[in-house]
Amino acid sequence: MPKVIVTVMPKPSVLDPQGVATAKLMKQSGLAGVGRVRVGKSIEIEFESTPDAAKLEGVARDLLSNPVIEDFRIETLP
């Protein structure tokens, strides 16, 4: 069963308070060298057959992400 992972990340220009808060917590945990942190989401999709690449990209762009605030990337696992 082919599996696809769509990763959705806030655009660099969008305020990501969750990333800022997470960076702060990581620093408080004693991890050295923490810089900028961004928090996004990862969507795992199992397909019964190989998906149509153009349609998948359309869904990733217009539904799974919001192009105003987010970027996405698609990774197909064998």
Partner: peptide
């Protein structure tokens, strides 16, 4: 409408 609504600044 243009734009989007995202998480509040202070979460």
């Amino acid at each position: 409408l243009p734009g989007a609504l995202v998480r509040n600044r202070d979460l």
